[in-house]
């Protein structure tokens, strides 16, 4: 269990989370990015940039 950086609600996490993965905060719906696995750190995921790729 960790807390949402946006609304501080508790965020249940399963332990096979990988760095870079995105999870949703059930409470406020924010997209959270796993910044580091150990210790587990979350941050608001960057918003969607207009994307063309190549």
């Amino acid at each position: 269990m960790t807390s949402c950086p946006e609304c501080e609600a508790d965020v249940p996490v399963d332990n096979d989370l990988e760095t870079g993965e995105i999870i949703l905060c059930e409470e406020c719906g924010a997209e959270l990015e796993v910044i580091s696995e150990d210790p587990l750190k979350l941050a608001l995921a960057p918003d969607e940039e207009e994307d063309w790729g190549e």
Binding site: E18, G20, I22, E31, A45, P46, E49, D51, W52
Partner: peptide
């Protein structure tokens, strides 16, 4: 350069930061 891109891979949503793409 896109600082990060959000992708879906094997069903998982993920942020990739070492991607050298842009427009």
């Amino acid at each position: 350069r896109k600082a990060a891109i959000k992708v879906v891979e094997d069903g998982k949503r993920r942020v990739l930061r070492d991607d050298f793409t842009g427009r």
